[in-house]
Structure formats: structure tokens, C-alpha cells
Design a protein around this nucleic acid. Sequence first.
DNA 1: TAGATTGTTAATCGATTAACAATC
DNA 2: TAGATTGTTAATCGATTAACAATC
Lengths: 213, 213
Amino acid sequence: MDGVKKYPVPTIRRLPLYLRVIREMAEKGRTAVSATDIANALNFDSIKVRKDLAYTQVTGKPRVGYQIQELINGIRAIIGWDRNAPAVLIGAGNLGSALMGFPGFAKRGLNFVAAFDNNPAKVGQEIHGRKVYALTDLERYIEDNHIEVAVLTIPAFAAQEVADRLAKCGIRGIWNFSQLKLKVPAGMVVQNENLVSGLAVFMVRLATGCSEE
Amino acid sequence: MDGVKKYPVPTIRRLPLYLRVIREMAEKGRTAVSATDIANALNFDSIKVRKDLAYTQVTGKPRVGYQIQELINGIRAIIGWDRNAPAVLIGAGNLGSALMGFPGFAKRGLNFVAAFDNNPAKVGQEIHGRKVYALTDLERYIEDNHIEVAVLTIPAFAAQEVADRLAKCGIRGIWNFSQLKLKVPAGMVVQNENLVSGLAVFMVRLATGCSEE
DNA sequence: TAGATTGTTAATCGATTAACAATC
DNA sequence: TAGATTGTTAATCGATTAACAATC
């Protein structure tokens, strides 16, 4: 642990992209990769890649590049994919089912262990191997199983009430897919994943024909 | 039209949030709103809000604020929610179904008209009211119906091939939910929506206990 | 060796925040 | 009027890009 190391958010967002690229190269049998190689694969500036990789503290060799395995370990360590965070899903609708059905999350340290919904038709069923519980069982389950992470895929009108309940039973982080800006106690992490903001950017770029992102 | 007006991406991402807040206020019967009001609702700095709102060219009155209706129109005009972009969905899996089932998109100018999938069990069925076609019918449908927008919710390994086909039949913009960085001809708009990057940021914030976003 | 690539320092660029006069 | 709020200019902050010496 290096105390309060601070990684820039844009860098964090790019690290998974690098990981994918160098994994592909590893599969082709390569053991080293240069920042230029990665940059080319992603249409990035190689200086940016080099600077991002410096955060891993992996050191490369001029004319050779970085050892792929070291880099994979270094990136995984930063973005938390060596951890295992058991998580509950709240709101077993279309989006919630999609998230639970995506095998990539468990591989990346986020492990759905149960789902909650207030639709009686769903309670008791299984979705992608996770049992759906009634929303009334939320606190009991979280406390019994020492869950610290929740993923919120419920409509905006119900989100704040659920967030309040989560804050009271030990949840430390909420990945929030609802459209509502949640009010939570200090120290709690809320990460808003905002598809509607993404759509807005897309529509503006379509209108202006702007092809850079 | 003001020629090549350029809006900062962070501003574009916030505009939908403002829209939601002022709509809620309008529903409560208010007709004017100050930048401070909006900022408080979202935990933003009011200067930032004021500067963002300036892009709408709506002008406010000191001590009063902005007329809500003017602001709604101004924001909608920028983020393209008064347009109607018919779109095809490619990949009718969990995520694709979730996106088609979200009523918010049509209201915001993105209108799914058909889905495509190469799973024969899905072809011919309807998902959230949209018919699912075979992937082989892609070009014919797009050309016959003059579609310009595609939403990609297929696995990475198949994404580039589909993107190549889309580029050849008149698609101008791809909202890309696959994990692959697509190579497309110049002038084509690709908007990557990267859930895995979002997860990375979330995991890092969880690990460091950083509550600001 | 020669030259590609690293690591790092400096310059640029853009977004956020601060300051403040104008105004209703 | 007094004071809250706008609109705008200036200052700060952080990320990207450029430059370049070190090195394998």
C-alpha cells in the first residue's frame, strides 16, 4: 500500500482498454509490448499511454517495451480486478438482468451474489444463477452476508429510498444506474453510470458530424 | 444554425441532469429557476451551472433566474432531443433488450425501429415491440428505411465485422456498447459506452474510499 | 554502433473555480 | 433601496501534448 496514491480518472478509464489490447497480444505469443503498439491499437497518443503505464510502476526497456505479464499484474492491481467484491443487484429488470448476465464483471472483481426486486412474480426465481429476493429482505441479507457493494438498477422514483436503506446497513459503495443523483452520508462512494448523458454526447456528435471522441 | 458551434463534452454530459431537475421544478408549478437552485439539487458549483446554461443562449434575470420553459427548449435544442433518429439495434441479447425497453430513449430522440440478431431462436420474435431480423437482412433493412444510426450490443469478436458492414450501407453513427475499439471510415461517428471503464473507476474509488466523483 | 523507445520535465490546452461589475 | 443573481473576465487547476536526454 502506498498511502493515498491518486490516479487520474481519465487514466483509470483507459487502463482496462490497455489490458484488453495487451491480453490479445499475449494470446498471440508475445511477451513484450511497447507503448507505441498499444497506442496504435487504440488510436491514442503514445506519450499518453506511456504516462498512464508509469502509474503501474512497471518499468520498460528502451527498444523493447514492457513485459506483458508485469503490465497485466500492474494494471489489475490498480483497477482492483484482483479483489473480489460480492455485490447485490437491486432492481431485477432488463438492465439489471443484463448486468448479471455479463460474465466480464465477475472476472473483474465484481461478483453478484443476489438480486432484489419488489415484483412478486420475480421473487424466488433465478436470473443468471442468482436468486431474486423480496426487497424487504434487503437489510437482513446484506448484514448476514457482510455485503459492501450494491448495484442500483431501479427507476429514479424509488432510488433515494433504497439508497437511504443501503446507507444504514453497511453498504460502502453504490454503482448507480438510476437517473437520480443520490444523497448519501459522507464517506459513501456513489458511482453514477449515466446512459442518458452518453446519449446526449452521441446526439450532439451526430448533429455536428464530429468524429473525435 | 450557428455554424460550427462547439460545446464542451463535460457540459453536454451535464445538460440532461439539469433538464431533469428543472422538469421536476416545473411539475411543482415553478416557472423560473436560478443556477443556484439547480446547483444545490445536484451538488454542483453554481458558477459551473451558470456557465453551462450560457451555451443555451437563454438569458436570465438577476434575482429571478431563468424561465424554465425557455431553458428546457434551449437545452433540448443543444442535446438533440427534439430530433428523431430512427435506429437499429444489433445484438438482441440482455443488454440490447434492456436498451430497447428503456422508454427514455425514444423520448430523447433515439427511436429503435428494429433489432438484428444471428440467433435463429430470436429471429421473427418481438422484443419490446420491435421485430428481430436475421443479421443477414441488415443492409437491406437499413437501405430500404434510410436508417443512419446503429446501436451495437454484440460481443467484441463480432463487432468489427458488423461495423464494416454498417459503414458500407449508409450508417453515420454507431453507439458502441461492445468492448472493441472499432475502426471506421473518416467522418463516421462512433460513441463508445464503456461499462468496464466505469467499473474500473468504481473499484478504485471503493479501494481508496474516495467519495468525490 | 545506430536508432527506437523509455522516463521525465516543460509547454500547451481546456475546464473549473474565483472575482466582480452590472442589473433587476 | 438592498441584495441576490446574472454574465463575464481572470486565475487556477489538471490533463494532454511536446521536447529531449538517457538507455538498451
